[in-house]
Nucleic acid binder design. Structure first.
Length: 491
RNA sequence: GCAGACGUAGCUCAGUUGGUUAGAGCGUCGGAUUGUGGCUCCGAAGGUCGUUGGUUCAACUCCAACCGUCUGUACCA
């Protein structure tokens, strides 16, 4: 007979998406709780919006295009309206505020965490679905609101265990950049395109350094694969002016500069010095909707990736003032400022710093099954419930009970601390065996032949059925003490 | 999007100037051991060689296109 050809479906994760492990979920939950605590402390309240919005509310893409999928994931509703997965949390918030403007008390201080989606090429540490945690103050026109955001970002970094000096909040103002553009003669509508090129070049200071920026402002730059990026083609004088501005040697007295000075004053009044918040002329941020102060959180410690290479991590969050966003819906001025933390990215970095994954969740105590009869199963389950009622994480083996070896193998691989064993012998005597799997593993190093290993039944004790809770508690406590001792001497 | 590198078992990779039946390690499953994890030994399953076409008596191997992955770069609300 010919081999039956079975068509197996290939199991594959969509490009740019990840599955999260138990450890990752627990670590990010812990992180989110710390961030939330800071925001709450500052007087912000949560609000949540859905993952989908009508495409026009997200502020891009005219109905002209066939399928508005450039950068966003979009689908057409059954009434033919285009909907998109949100690509940030700011545009949906603006929609929410505009829609409920009569009920919302301004200034509105709010935070929210959520998944956002970007339909673009994924890279190392860049995914098409990732989590952001935002805070915004809406209806606050003054720079004191922006300054508060910067200080809250700094506090959040420290709440997450990033020591002062290992991060910095860099602050700039879009109006200052506008002034620079004026100064090099790139003001006005006709120069909009070149202004963008120049701003992008300025934004790349931390990536390519002053020399790289000089190339991008001038003729252009060739990358490592030999691909050429066209530059802004400015003349030498303009380039010198921009580089001077970025180095902090050229100062323009503009409205933006006055705002920056005001913020600096607030920072120093609150003792947030340059080791936490720093004015930095090279901060640009997104080119779309920011209108005033912009700020960015950057990590300063080296981050190594899974391959052991040191990578330039860059920004883990940022934000700014977006005075026009709500106005698009309401027609009336609703000034706002806020920032966003890239939770997924920050988590990668924190893992690196050893600030995550410390508190391991202990695997459950395993109640093994020696007898699959209905009555016996009830007894095993009852034992398990007794442990649970005493606050002990426990489970009964749910696989094929007939292969007892597999039950212990399962317990071993899960990292179970203890296994409870009751066969017919123990049952008759009204006792159970409690096996210390941690201690047993240690002893296994000294035993080389299998018969001895099986017959010696290492690290196992017999206790009366009624004493299970007390015995399990005692053994778990002893294990916990051993772990503490090991981590003290180990580090 | 542009440029480059790479696609062979679940994973990591061998595979000779093109030659007949495509291999290894790890992992998985079974057994040695129907009531005891680890070690050891024995055995098994698992492949459209990324896809399609071309050159050839003969293609995993050479050529082309496409698809996918990775790296850099561009864009990034």
């Amino acid at each position: 007979m010919a081999k039956p050809k079975t068509f197996k479906l290939k199991a594959r994760l969509p490009r740019g998406f990840v599955d999260r492990s138990a450890a990752d979920i627990r670590a990010s939950d812990a992180m989110l709780a710390k961030i939330r605590a800071v925001y709450e402390h500052y007087g912000f309240d949560p609000v949540e919006t859905p993952a989908f919005e009508y495409t026009d509310c997200l502020g891009k893409f005219l109905p002209d295009t066939d399928r508005p999928n450039a950068g966003v994931f979009s689908v057409q509703d059954d009434d033919e309206q285009w909907m998109s997965l949100r690509y940030d949390l700011t545009a949906p918030l603006a929609r929410h505020v505009a829609e409920n403007i009569n009920e919302i008390q301004l200034p509105y201080r709010t935070y929210r965490a959520g998944w956002v989606f970007r339909n673009e090429k994924p890279g190392p540490g860049r995914f098409r679905q990732f989590m952001q945690f935002d805070a915004d103050t809406i209806g606050a026109p003054g720079v004191q609101a922006d300054a508060e955001m910067c200080m809250m970002m700094a506090d959040t970094m420290e709440a997450l265990g990033i020591p002062r000096g290992s991060y910095v909040i860099r602050v700039n103002n879009r109006k200052v950049l506008d002034g620079v553009m004026e100064a090099i003669g790139l003001g006005g509508e006709e120069n909009a395109e070149r202004r963008l090129t120049v701003l992008r070049a300025i934004d790349k200071l931390d990536k390519f350094g002053p020399d790289g920026v000089r190339l991008l402002l001038g003729e252009g730059r060739k990358d490592e694969s030999g691909d050429f990026t066209k530059g802004a083609e400015l003349d030498g004088e303009a380039i010198d002016l921009i580089l001077g501005y970025m180095a902090g040697t050229t100062r323009l007295d503009t409205e933006g500069q006055a705002e920056l000075d005001q913020m600096a004053e607030i920072f120093s009044a609150c003792d947030y010095d340059a080791d936490r918040i720093k004015i930095d002329p090279s901060v640009v941020r997104g080119l779309e909707y920011y209108t005033g102060p912009v700020y960015e959180a950057e990590l300063l410690f080296p981050v190594t990736n899974e391959k052991g290479e040191v990578v330039q991590f860059g920004s883990v969050g940022g934000g700014g003032r977006y005075d026009g966003l709500v106005k698009r819906f309401t027609g009336r001025d609703v000034p706002a400022t806020g920032f966003s933390i890239g939770v997924s990215r920050l988590m990668t970095a924190l893992k690196n710093l050893g600030k995550l994954g410390r508190e391991e969740v202990l695997a459950p105590v395993l109640v093994t099954v020696m007898d699959g009869g209905t009555e016996a199963l009830g007894r095993y389950q009852k034992m398990t419930q007794t442990l649970r009622a005493a606050g002990i994480r426990a489970e009964m083996y749910q696989g094929n009970w007939k292969k007892f070896g597999n039950q212990l193998k399962y317990a071993d691989r899960r990292g179970c601390p203890l296994a409870i064993i009751q066969g017919s012998d123990e049952r008759e005597q009204g006792v159970v065996q409690i096996k210390d799997l941690i201690e047993g593993k240690r002893l296994s190093g000294e035993i080389t032949d299998n018969v001895t290993w099986r017959e010696s039944r290492p690290a196992q004790e017999t206790v009366a059925e009624g004493d299970i809770v007390a015995a399990v508690t005692r053994m778990l406590t002893a294990q916990a003490e051993d772990r503490d001792k090991a981590s003290e001497s180990g580090e």
